[in-house]
Design a protein around this nucleic acid. Structure first.
Lengths: 410, 410
DNA sequence: CCTCCTTTTGTGGATTTATACTAACGATAT
DNA sequence: ATATCGTTAGTATAAATCCACAAAAGGAGG
């Protein structure tokens, strides 16, 4: 490294832009600095050749999701996260990435961001790489400062989120103003998503937020941690797209958490998106209920993400409480089937349960029970005879369905 | 009338049997005496010729239901009830009735019973008829005495019934013993049937009990009146037959009340039949709930008679109460359809309701809505788009069904 | 052992249901 | 007026469901 360069990295920079230009000048290549979430912090201005990925990054002010994802799959980001050495990355043509070199900006073990150098026209020498490493260590101070501001801001955001979900902030107007004050002005319906984990740590939480924010499938306004639960406040565009996009997000999120960190036991739930911000608490409560009910009825609710998809199970706990108080007897039909099953070593009650779960679709039910459709039809006939019920009558059918669920809960 | 005869009717008779033999002797025909419910009280012993109906009556200790029914249809019994004149009834061959003469035994306007004279070998003269009328007036005293015993017995019965349905008598053993004490020893499951009327009077109550007892479709152990409601304690044979027979009884009962007294607004309900007599109160409560729910959901529950046939509606009121307390919002799907209906002058909400009531049977639903099946399919598709729901998912479908019912209750 | 009863599985044919495509109509906007 | 959209029906065809019947397997009890 030359003295000149050494000095140039040591001097005071007014801004990150000046700094990135200095690196670019030294290496004679386009340079980009990102934060730990791959959001663009600064990019060198005097760039002759730039690849598609860099253009997208600059335009979108963040690295495109598919690029991040690819870097994860290729092991690039994990490697960067684990060392402060520059990493040479060969070009990946199909997503428009030229040859580049990257290094993480870090304080001890915490990654604060990344410097990316695009190798345009030349290949970096060992000396260049050493200087790049030096530059990364110099960038640390700048990013630390930014990071502290960000953390402070986030604290404010989180406090507001807590006020909203605990019901402390009750007035739509007030909430809206406070959101504006901290730079969030959605003018859109807001909803709460929850993810619940078996274990939780500060480190894991950071990873989760990182993944959630980098999937870019959805607009996360505020996030926070509540014991083992991650709370996201999100904004929707149009109601219908919102549902689809959110489901997509949750799907991707879970997949990536599983692939990248090997965690597959994740419960998720999402409340309605409400225009009126008074109801964000309700959205949170709904998301909570989704999770707790999915934990109790994982089979029945495995395709449910939203509160409205809980269907009949929204009422289950109300009824269970009332049942206990009023001491209503178990439906005699169920009791009779139970007795019959015991006496004849049959499984009519389970059969009925499956039929009800499949809403009378005998083919599906037969598949699940590994028996012939006709067998199932025969059993159904017997069930109706024995239990003295009429499944053709929707009223009785629904009643039995509920009874079965309530019955199971004992 | 001869002095001899006159005297013979005036003398003291030790029993109704002696009395009926005296009439038979005088008229030279078989004679039968029934109480007001057509139960056999006495019959003449020295009978040469007897028709099928009389044999059945004597064997069964009461007049067969089809005979009673026929006499009502022919206007015989109404006529007898309205006058104290003997009535000559031509033979009705198809139910085995020969020629006969009947007269009501009455005290003022109250009918206490009937005397039947079978015209075997001879036809009664005017003089015979006058003597028969005299005999009827003499029988009054005997029947009045019987009637008073019966009423007293009934009072005891009713008191026990009240103890059971109010829960005063809690112990199975005790109830069973008390039933035995008053001559009822069913050793069978017992249930409560209720009939509720818009108006009620002592006279109507008597008529109702008369009809209920004479249909002979079911074994009524005790009956009583509770404001506008008639309460029957009934015993069952086998569970399955019980349901069928009871439904049959209720059907017949309502038909006859309508045909004979022109009353068609009748609510009915029946509780389970319980082995354990502690639960007779529960049977009563169930019957009460059947009636009140049928009054609220007459369309949905028009085929329901028994508590177990209430299906999902058993839970409706629990949920409605909880809804009020917790102030749960109306399902957004319903709200959206409502809005859409208003803006486009459509009936999607009603359409959904019918589809749900018909449990997804599009043909039936189309019939009810007077539209083409394809139209309905199209509407369903639109409904699912607009409301963002998925009726293929049974969980959502059931949830919506409940929401619609709860929603309607506002 | 056989017999009776329940249960399972299979077959064939009638009926119902699902789906795609099309014609037609009326309201609304251009 | 013309085009477009949402709506209603009709037809045709494939898919499924339903139903009656029969063969066969397994168990309980004599």
């Amino acid at each position: 490294m030359t003295d000149k360069n050494h000095q140039s990295f040591n001097r005071q920079f007014d801004s990150l832009e000046e700094f990135v230009d200095a690196i670019s000048e030294r290496l004679q290549c386009p340079v980009t600095i990102e934060d730990s979430n791959h959001h663009l912090l600064a990019y060198s201005s005097h760039d002759d050749g730039t690849d598609a990925a860099r253009i997208s990054t600059i335009i979108g002010r963040r690295v495109p999701e598919k690029v991040i994802n690819r870097f994860w799959k290729e092991g690039v980001i994990p490697t960067l996260n684990q060392s402060d050495e520059p990493l040479v990355i060969p070009q990946i043509h199909d997503i428009g990435l030229g040859n580049r070199v990257a290094v993480s900006i870090r304080k001890n073990n915490e990654v604060l961001g990344y410097i990316w150098v695009l190798e345009v026209g030349r290949t970096l020498t060992k000396e260049d790489l050493a200087d790049l490493k030096l530059a990364a260590s110099k960038a640390k101070n700048q990013l630390l400062q930014l990071n502290m501001q960000k953390k402070k801001k986030e604290k404010n955001h989180q406090e507001l989120l807590w006020q909203m979900i605990t019901g402390d902030a009750r007035n739509h107007q007030v909430i809206s103003e406070q959101l504006s004050k901290i730079g969030i002005n959605p003018q859109k319906p807001l909803a709460v998503i929850l993810f619940s984990f078996d274990v939780m740590s500060d480190e894991l939480y950071k990873k989760l937020v990182y993944v959630a924010k980098t999937t870019q499938k959805i607009n996360i306004l505020i996030q926070t941690l509540d014991e083992n639960q991650v709370v996201f406040l999100i904004s929707s565009h149009i109601q219908n797209d919102f549902v689809k996009e959110t489901k997509d997000f949750i799907e991707t999120f879970k997949t990536q958490i599983r692939e990248r960190f090997g965690i597959s036991q994740i419960w998720s739930g999402c409340g309605y998106a409400y225009d009126n911000y008074e109801w964000i608490k309700r959205s949170y409560d709904e998301a909570t209920k989704v999770i707790s009910l999915k934990q109790s009825f994982d089979q029945e609710l495995k395709s449910a993400t939203f509160y409205h998809e809980l269907g009949i199970f929204r009422y289950i706990d109300i009824l269970q409480q009332a049942e206990q108080v009023e001491d209503i007897t178990i439906n005699p039909a169920i009791r009779k089937l139970e007795t019959y099953d015991l006496e004849h070593r049959t499984n009519l009650l389970e059969t009925l349960d499956v039929i009800l779960n499949k809403d009378g679709n005998m083919n599906e039910a037969a598949k699940e029970l590994h028996c012939h459709v006709n067998t199932l039809n025969y059993r159904l006939k017997r069930i109706q005879e024995i239990a003295n019920i009429q499944l053709k009558d929707p009223v009785q059918k629904l009643g039995l369905y509920l009874d079965m669920k309530l019955f199971r809960g004992r």
